[in-house]
Amino acid sequence: MEEIELDTVGEQLAVEQKKSAEYLDLLQRTQADFINFKRRARQEQTETRSSAQAALLEQLLPVLDDLGRVLTSAPPELSDHPWAQGVTLSARQLSNTLEQLGLQTLGVPGESFDPYKHEAMMQMASNDFPPGQLPR
């Protein structure tokens, strides 16, 4: 009678031990997942701020390009006009503010094309620049 009971208890113990090993395994895996998650959450928090700012600045880029076109095509006879000077000063103020926010102009003429920094829109023949350089 006692032997039968011992066998049953032994079996139960084996089942429970197996279960506890599985639970321990699961716990360890979950803990590892959680540590990874915490590390990523921290990393993502830092990234989110800069990517939100970058997304906003990116939206402004076409407007800045247009403003650049406004300034470069200003009629020469207006260059001394106080209103035109005011426009130039306002544009400079805007570009200074954006620079402080980390926006930099990339791609000066003569710089080598680098796809990590530049996006090529077209390629054209030129006598002034060797191949692979930015003309403007």
Partner: peptide
């Protein structure tokens, strides 16, 4: 594959496509 033999994939590859 760039002229210098570098392999580019994704956005960077797309950016240099016309050249």
């Amino acid at each position: 594959i760039t002229k210098s033999g570098e392999r580019l994939v994704g956005q960077v590859a797309k950016r240099q496509a016309v050249t």
